[in-house]
Nucleic acid binder design. Structure first.
Length: 159
DNA sequence: GCCAACGTTGGC
DNA sequence: GCCAACGTTGGC
């Protein structure tokens, strides 16, 4: 049973377009530096899981598209790299502190779902994005996922 | 750039 | 282990 995640990124730093432009549309999702988010990546993510990409800290905060997890969790290499900005001197190769997965671009939504619009739907009132907006690795329920797809890809919703 | 929410650090 | 101080996130 694959899970559904929402991953936040600042488009000025790494947008869904940047992900799409990566070789094979695939990139390591590095830079998670929060323990609760880390635990989800390290302990709960699996290859094959679905991913919603969310753009934060930008003009139009929104869910903008989909990706999928294409690796098992593994230590985030940037924690060992002094020049990466993600360096953490408390980490060691033997005891890595931060983990990542590789994700692969799937699609960009024809109609991104802005945070503003999402908040107008009562059915999203208990979504983590609304309740705990700062957590960078969020869980999405199957029901929420299907509704988001309906709203973001209206012409293909007639399944 | 402001500021509320909340995560982390570190002295005790 | 408490909690004050401080740092970060992210919408607005």
């Amino acid at each position: 049973m694959s899970a559904i995640w929402l991953l936040k990124t600042e488009p000025d730093t790494f947008s869904i377009n940047d992900l799409q432009a990566c070789p094979g549309g695939t990139s390591g999702w590095d830079g998670v530096r929060n323990y609760q988010a880390r635990n989800r990546v390290r302990d709960e993510m699996n290859e094959g899981d679905c991913v919603l990409i969310y753009h934060s800290s930008c003009a139009q905060p929104a869910i903008v598209g989909e990706a999928c997890v294409v690796s098992a969790p593994y230590p985030d290499p940037s924690q060992f790299d002094l020049d990466s900005g993600g360096f953490d001197n408390r980490s060691s190769r033997e005891e890595p502190r931060w983990y990542q997965v590789d994700i692969r671009y799937l699609c960009t939504y024809p109609q991104p779902l802005s945070l503003k619009t999402l908040r107008q739907y009562a059915e999203f009132a208990d979504m983590e994005l609304v309740v705990r907006p700062r957590l960078s690795v969020q869980k999405v329920t199957e029901r929420q996922f299907q509704r988001i797809q309906q709203l973001c890809m209206p012409e293909s919703a007639s399944a």
